[in-house]
Design a protein around this nucleic acid. Sequence first.
DNA 1: TATGAATGAGGGTTCATTCAT
DNA 2: AATGAATGAACCCTCATTCAT
Lengths: 215, 215, 215, 215
Amino acid sequence: MGGGRTRRMPRAERERQMLDAAVQIIARHGYAAASMDEIAELAGVSKPLVYLYLNSKDDLFTACIRREAAALTRAVRAAVRSALPADRRLWAGVLAFFTYTAEHPDGWTVLHLQARTHGPRFAAEADAVRAEMTAFVTRLIATAARESPHSRDLPARETEGLAVALIGAAESLADWTNTIPAATAVQAATTLMNFAWSGLGDLMSGEQWTEPVGA
Amino acid sequence: MGGGRTRRMPRAERERQMLDAAVQIIARHGYAAASMDEIAELAGVSKPLVYLYLNSKDDLFTACIRREAAALTRAVRAAVRSALPADRRLWAGVLAFFTYTAEHPDGWTVLHLQARTHGPRFAAEADAVRAEMTAFVTRLIATAARESPHSRDLPARETEGLAVALIGAAESLADWTNTIPAATAVQAATTLMNFAWSGLGDLMSGEQWTEPVGA
Amino acid sequence: MGGGRTRRMPRAERERQMLDAAVQIIARHGYAAASMDEIAELAGVSKPLVYLYLNSKDDLFTACIRREAAALTRAVRAAVRSALPADRRLWAGVLAFFTYTAEHPDGWTVLHLQARTHGPRFAAEADAVRAEMTAFVTRLIATAARESPHSRDLPARETEGLAVALIGAAESLADWTNTIPAATAVQAATTLMNFAWSGLGDLMSGEQWTEPVGA
Amino acid sequence: MGGGRTRRMPRAERERQMLDAAVQIIARHGYAAASMDEIAELAGVSKPLVYLYLNSKDDLFTACIRREAAALTRAVRAAVRSALPADRRLWAGVLAFFTYTAEHPDGWTVLHLQARTHGPRFAAEADAVRAEMTAFVTRLIATAARESPHSRDLPARETEGLAVALIGAAESLADWTNTIPAATAVQAATTLMNFAWSGLGDLMSGEQWTEPVGA
DNA sequence: TATGAATGAGGGTTCATTCAT
DNA sequence: AATGAATGAACCCTCATTCAT
C-alpha cells in the first residue's frame, strides 16, 4: 500500500502543507472540532509526522496563528510604510487589510475568530496583530488631530477608543464582505473610509470622502 | 463557593441556574472545552439533571445563546422604541447595548464569540441578533439620509455596509471596554457616537458630537 | 397538569397494566433496550409506582416471564388434561400451543427469545415451561412406544431427544406462523402433526432411519 | 489467562482475536450486557483499538454474526455439495450442522439467540443463514416428494412449513445436545433423522396424519 | 395511592499522543 | 523522512433507582 502520496519532500514544504491543512480545517470546523487525523489526512501525511514537525495540537494552532498574523501584518505594514498624508496612509492600510481578508478567508477566520475563542494563550497571539493595527491607527489619529487647524487635544484613552472602533468596523466589514460574492476589497475599503473618515455627519452633508488618486 | 446544594427546587429556577453556569463556563473556557461535569457542578446539580432539563450539550448551548440573544435584543429594543430624532434613538440603543455588554460580560462573550465559532447551527442563532441590530441601524441611516437637507441618496448596499461597520465598531468597543476596569457604558457610547455620528473628519474640525441632554 | 391518566385504580389492575406494557416493550425492543421510563409511560403511570409495585427491573422481567409462562402452561395443560389416545392428546396440546402463540405474540417472544438471552436467572424461569412441555411429550412418546404393536424400547435419552426435537419444531413453526398474516393455528398444528406424528409413527413401527454407511 | 499482552501484530490477526473475544462474551453475557471494556480486555488490547478496527459496538456485533453465519453456512454447504440421494445429502448437512454447533457453542449462541433478540438489524443478518438452510431443506423435500413412488404433491406453503419444522427441531436439538456433556454430533444427527426422515418418509407414502374430528 | 425532583454508576465513543520500525 | 500499531484519559450521555411530598 502507501501509494498516492508524494513522499520525501523537504521539511519546509511539508510544514507549509500541514499549516495549510490546519488553517483550512480549523477555520471551517473550529479548533476544538478539528482533529489531528483530519489535518494529517488533508496534508497528505501520517499523524506521527505532524507531531514530529509541529509537536502538538496547541503548537500547531499557535504556528497557524503566527503565520497568518505575520502575513497580515506584513501586508499592512508594507502598504503603510510610506510618508504620505494621514488619510492616504490609512486608505493604503485599510485596502491592504481587506485584500488580505478577501484572499485568505480561512486565515482571517483563524486569526479573527478561532484564535480568540480557545483560551488566553491563543488569544494573546492574535492580539499582537490587533494591537499593532490599533497602535498604528491611534498614532494616525493623534497626529492628524495635532496637525489639524483647530488642533484639538484628544485624551489618549479617547484616541485609542476611536482606533478600536475603527479596527472593529474594519473587521466587521471584512466578515460581511466575505459573505457577498461580488464584493471587492476596494468597495469595502471605500465604505470604511466613508464611515470612518468623513463620518456619518459629513455623509449627510454630502461631503463624501474620496479615494485618493494614484493609490 | 458556598457548599451544600440547596435541594428540591422548581424546574424553572433550576434551569436558570444551569444556564447561568453554562454561560459562565462556556464564556471562560470555550464551548468545546466546557465539560458538562463542570457546568453541572457549578450549577450545584448532578449531570443527569442537566440532561433531563436541557437535553444535550448542543441544546444547552443553543438555550444559552437564545437566552442571551433575547436579553440583549429586549434591552436594545426597549431603549429604541421611542419617537425621537435619529441621533437620539441611536444614542439610546447604543447606550443600552454597552450597558448590557458591561453587565453581562459572559453572556456577551457567548453571543459574540462562542456562538460564532462552533459551527453554523449556533452561528445562525446568534446572527439573528446581529441582523436585527444591523437592520435597525440601516433604517436609521436611510431615514437620516433622506431627511437631511442635502438629501443624499445612498445605495442600499452602501447603507447596509455603513451599518455593518457601525455594529462592528460597537462590538469592538464593547470588548475593549470590558478589559478596562474603570470604563463605563456611557463613555463607550460617547466614543462610538463621536466616531460614528460626527465622523473623524468632523472631529478634526472640532465639531464634536454631544450627548443629548436629558437622555 | 397531570390530566389524562385515570388515577386511583386497584393495585391488581395497575399491575396488570404494567406487565402488559412491559411485555410489549420488552418483546419489541428487547429486555436490555427496554427502559423503565418507556414502560411506565406506556402503562400510564409514573416510574416510582412501577418500583413500588414491581420492585426492580429484574423483578418486573421475572414477573412478565412467570405470567406468560403460567398462561401458556395453563392453556396447554387444560387442553391435554383428557383421557384421550396419545395422538389426540398431542393434537390438543399442540393446537393450544399454537393458539396461545398466535394470540399472544409479544408474550411468546418474551418467553421464547427474551427470557433465554439475558442471563441464566431469567432463562431458568422460562425453562420451566419447556421442561414441562418436553416432559409431557416424552411421556407421550414413551407410552405410545410401549403400547405400539411392535413395542419398541427406546432408550430414555433417545425418547427425550425426540421430544426436544418436537418442541423445537413447534417453536420454530410458531415463529414462522406469526410472520405469515393469513396463517392459522390449525394449519400450524396440522403441519407439525404431519411432520412429527407420521415420523414418530414410523419409529413405532420399527422402521428406524439408519445412518448411511461410509458417509 | 496467560498474562502479558503480545504486542504488535498484523491487523487481520488482531481483528480475529477481537471477534473471538466478542463472540465469547456476547454469547455468555448477552449483547447488551457485554461491555466493550470486557471484550477489549479479553482480546488483550485497549478499547480504542477495537473501535479503530471494528468501528462501533453494533458493527462489532454485526461482524461477529456475519463471521459465524459464514462459517456455519460454509460447513453445511460443503457437506451438502454432493450428488447423493436426498436422505444422504440431508444426513450430511445435518451432521455438519451439529458438528459446527458442538464445536462452536458460543458462535452458535450468538447466531441462534443473541442475533435474534436485539433488534431487526441484527436479526436480518442471522436470518440469511436460516433462510438458506430452510430453502435447502424445502428443495430437498419437494424433490423427494416428486421422486417418491406415490408422487405426492405438497403445496409450497406446506413444504416450507415442514422445512421450518425440521430446522427448528435441529436448532432445539443443538441447544439440548450442548447441555449434555457426553452427547455427540452423530447422536444428535441420528435423533433428528429418526424424527424427521421417518416422518417425512411417511408423508411421501401418502400416509398423512389427519386431524381428529370433533377435537 | 401516586409523583416531580434528583442522582450514582457505568457504558460507548473519541482524541491527542506515542512506540517500534 | 516516514508510518502502522497502539493506548490513557476524558467526555457525552443514559439508566435503574430513590427521596420527599
